[in-house]
Design a protein around this nucleic acid. Structure first.
Lengths: 336, 336
DNA sequence: CTGAAAGCGCTTACAG
DNA sequence: CTGAAAGCGCTTACAG
């Protein structure tokens, strides 16, 4: 129960403290036998390093951040959450550097330039990838840096990711719409289903809708454009006489709501969206939007920092799926 | 931007490092003039202490915890959350001691005995009070320890608290029930409205119900007894022909659901409860319970530890109100 | 009231 | 491959 320190582990294994430290951290060159002996000693004694001492003594305390530079209000909660989480570790002696890249560009250089400019001065990386990471994964892998992808899963073994549970987002949307006795026929306006993130939203939504006897009459891609979303909504209304609900799985719900409001259908056709920001919050307040699924950017950001640091100190981590939260009118004040 | 350390503050103020430390922490006897000079220097340089160094060097690292000993499954999430949060700080060299007391006893000794047994060996306290704290507040105050009350607000200036936003719990319940087109007449089964926590639930519920045109036909106290809740539900049904929804603001929703299930009213009368544990989760799965408001015990616990430690290091903190979360069938897996 | 010094438990050059 | 030693930035006896 009392705290065993590395000096005791070293004594138990019959080596110097510095040898024990290097063995336990896998740094420096220690003979396999010695490593084994030290690890056994540590296990036997139940050694857990004192993180205050590790942080104080350690030198690998520089974190790199690479983010899309979209000047979009939807990006802000994630960035705010990241900075808040990082600042906690600044108190423990960490530093961080943020770089931006143009996520809309297909050229890999927009990313690799940002990466190259920091890769030699950081000991770990958190990045929000673009939808297609294949063009710049090589330099990332070659760097050998511990890294975590945020918000978008990298379907690749070199990098674990922290994302919201995308499928759950869709399921919650379907269940929410099914609460209304009047809702039978629903549609979905997705972002871009060529991206896995939107396919998972869709899968969750259709699965849960099926299970609850909702009929999904249409699924359309808005490509994250408000204008598209407006037109698509208009088309949906014309095409499907009896539409009762719409799930908007990207941040364009304000355009959907505006379209319904203009046609006197607000509240008649129930809408559930994702992402809470000024314009979506206003729709929620007016009632043209019935609920928002918060993708918990703050918690995603916090966890990505925690995971990166444990990766930098201890080695392996796993993919993390953060829970989405349902936001209604009454509790929206907590989220905006 | 680069980290300024206490040695630089000391140099700027023309004092020794130890003097600067004592002045900044308010420990030791330093002349007011010197303190002022040091504080100004710190402010000028933007000094922020390195917490790794503070944690490593500091000696006040023992946390006391006093909890009710109710062997109730509803207590567990809070305890689990507390231990998880505390264990993080154990990694930083902190220790903690847990004591239990019989919350149902009116005798103050049940609490003060627990407190006395640890008060001399701890540097900070987190406690879950009973509903009436007045009988044992004196010894707490006299100890001068930094302390945080958890789950139940101490309406007293000597101690800040971390609680869920009780009023919001009630508001969310009312809004949720109002989503159903069929729901007009609702009732509430509270815990014990002589406790402020339940009065706030009630206030939030009635206010939001009013705002949404629901008519609150009855409010009854269950005194947290499943048997009472069953009987009250039965009485509600008889008394009010057209009851559409019930908000159960203590953990007794399973009894309410059982009563409705037995009468073939499950799903007809919508029920929303609080606290997610095995039995309430089953009702949610079966559909006799439509939703649960999770009072976020995990986050309450985490915050109480964070607040206590910043109280122990830096001084003042404020009351914290944690956001409740709405749990439906589809996302319940995240909570149980 | 002030300061010099030891020490918290690690990691990391550095020397061997 | 191994170890002795310095040092991370603080706090806290202790001496004055």
């Amino acid at each position: 129960m009392s705290k065993v320190k590395i000096s005791e582990v070293a004594a138990e294994a019959g080596v110097a403290i510095s040898t024990a430290s290097k063995a336990l951290n896998g740094t420096g060159a220690i003979s396999p036998d010695t490593v084994k002996r030290i690890e056994e000693a540590a296990g036997r004694l139940g050694y857990k390093p004192n993180r205050a001492a590790q942080f104080l003594a350690g030198k690998n305390k520089s974190i790199g951040i690479i983010l899309p530079d979209e000047p979009c209000e939807v990006m802000d909660p994630m960035v705010d959450g990241l900075i808040e989480a990082l600042d906690e570790y600044v108190n423990f002696g960490f530093r961080y550097t943020i770089r931006h890249y143009d996520r809309t560009s297909p050229k890999p250089e927009v990313f690799t330039d940002a990466f190259d400019s920091i890769k030699d001065s950081i000991n770990g990386l958190i990045f929000i990838p673009s939808f297609d990471i294949s063009t710049y994964r090589e330099p990332l892998i070659k760097s050998g840096l511990p890294m975590i992808s945020l918000q978008i899963a990298v379907d690749d073994s070199f990098c674990k990711s922290v994302t919201v549970d995308e499928r759950m987002v869709g399921r919650m949307a379907a269940e929410f719409l099914s609460l209304f006795d009047s809702v039978r026929r629903v549609a979905m306006i997705a972002g871009d289903r060529s991206a896995s993130i939107h396919r998972m939203n869709t899968e969750g939504f259709t699965a849960e809708a099926d299970a609850r006897g909702l009929s999904v009459v249409d699924i359309l891609d808005s490509y994250d454009s408000m204008d598209n979303a407006y037109e698509l909504t208009s088309a949906l209304i014309e095409r499907h006489g009896e539409l009762d609900g719409i799930f908007v799985s990207s941040y364009v719900s304000p355009a959907v709501c505006r379209c319904l409001e203009e046609r006197g259908l607000a509240g008649k056709i129930k809408v559930i969206g994702v992402d809470i920001f000024d314009r979506s919050a206003e729709c929620l307040k007016r009632g043209s939007l019935s609920a928002i699924i918060y993708q918990n950017q703050r918690e995603q950001a916090r966890r990505s920092v925690i995971e990166l640091i444990s990766l930098m100190r201890e080695g392996r981590v796993e993919d993390v799926h953060i829970k989405p939260e349902l936001v209604l009118q009454s509790n929206m004040s907590f989220y905006i």
